[in-house]
Structures are given as structure tokens and as C-alpha cells.
Nucleic acid binder design. Sequence first.
DNA 1: AACGAAACCTGCGCGC
DNA 2: TGCGCGCAGGTTTCGT
Length: 268
Amino acid sequence: MPELPEVETVVTVLKRRILGLTIQNIDIYYDKMMDEDTKTLLIGKTISDITRQGKYICFHLNPYVLISHLRMEGRYFFKDIDEPKLKHEHVVFTLSDGLSLRYHDTRKFGTFDLRHLSDYKVVPPLSQLADEPFQIDPKALYKTLKSKHKAIKTALLDQSIIAGIGNIYADEILFSTRINPHRMTSKLTQKDTTNVVNAAILILNQAILSGGTTIRTYVSELGVSGRFQLKLMVHQREGEHCYVCGGSIVREVINGRSSFYCKTCQKR
DNA sequence: AACGAAACCTGCGCGC
DNA sequence: TGCGCGCAGGTTTCGT
């Protein structure tokens, strides 16, 4: 499901609902999702803050941080404790207000990592994370890209180069800057790089304002669903006409991911 | 260093 | 109706 804007939306909703609450119990229904040690250490802890770094959600539970990654299909729901557990609810947190926070994940790709508050940013997985478009220095990014030999589309998806961008927004950012997804990063100019950063900020912010995107309805909270407000220019539009030149949008696999672009607008 | 393929999982839509 | 295939917003791992 999520790229940075969707995760941001989830964090906003979670903060509104569970800040200051204490974890009274955790039920794990899929062993691989969370280990027993983590569960034991977290029971009795209070959620003092919830932050986001890239696509990771950080629950601050002094002296620990529970780091949650939704991967493709992870979602959080709030429900009454006595509501029956659904098939894809794998971790259920019982909170001190009497509600349960349920982690739902059809494909079971999501992860939970427990770290210490004192150093969680400098150990994996967060230590691998680059700056987000909002903070990244375009000059530093240009230098990084110059030193790599890979397609720009691949680089935008590499969280150690720039954090928070996923497959949808990578395509949209490249269309917006008229850069062909196959273009080698070493051939990008400083101006191209600055354009990419600016486009990323603009597009991600728009998506955050819409409460996340886009393709399927996604629910960040019971009763609050992601809307389809952000108009996608190229992603998932194979064979349709380009809104700018009228040409046909193509789909090609790059780095194992579907990539949509306009061959006329986005020259190599 | 970089690429591709496979792995981790499940469900959906499609053609036959 | 059923079956097999390809596809999915992410990331890691392994071989070349």
C-alpha cells in the first residue's frame, strides 16, 4: 500500500487516537510478525510519541521504539476488543482506553522491529535510510547520483539514496520533470536533480493533503478511507493518452517494477 | 557495484 | 466452475 504520504496519513491518525495510551496486552497470531521477547518488553509501556521516517512508523515506548513497516498491504484498524478477529489481523494491541489496535496485512510482508530509543536511528533498519525529499540537499543528491551507474527510476526507489518514494510517485515525479525512467543517474545534470527534488516535494505534499492516494481504496482508520483525489498522470495508465502531448503511455519493467511513462514527453 | 531472479505471502482479474 | 498465469503501492537475498 504505502509510500511516504500514506504512511504520513496513518501516523497522523494513530497520533490522534493512541498518544498517551498504555499497551496492556499484545496478541500475536502470526509468529513471524513479532517475537515473544518484543511482546514481553512492550506490555505496560506507554506510547509517548509516534513518528515517521521514510516509510517506517516509529512508536515511542520509552526506553524502546517499535518500528513498523507496512510494506505492500499493512494497515491499522481500531476496533472494540470483543470484535471477532479477522483472518488477516496478525497483531492485536490491547490499549488502556479499552480499544484494540489491530495490524492487518493480507500478504504478511510487514515487519516490526524493536530498538532502543537511544540509538534506533543509527542501527538498521533506519540507519540505511537516506534523507527524504523535504530535507535532502540537491547538491549532495546530485553528487550521489553522479557516482552511481543505474537508471534514475531504480535510484528513486532506492531508500538509501532518497527516502519515501515508491513505485507510483517515482513514475509521477519522472513524468513531471520530463525525465525518462531509463536515463542513467550519471547523466543527470544538477538542474535535473533539483527539478526531481522539487517535483518530489510537490507531489508528496499534494498526496499528503489528499490523505494518501490513489489506486485502490485504502483505509487508514475505520470509517476513513483514502480518496482518489490525486490525479495520476502516468502510473497505471498503459495505452491511455498522455495528458500533455496526447501520445500513448507505455509500460516497461525496470528493476523488476512496472514503470509507466510517455516516450514523447520523457526523452532519454 | 549493479542487475536479474527469487523469496517473503495472498488475492484478484483474466483468458481458456 | 475451475485452472493457471500475471499482477500488486516493498524490501532483502543470492548468484553472476
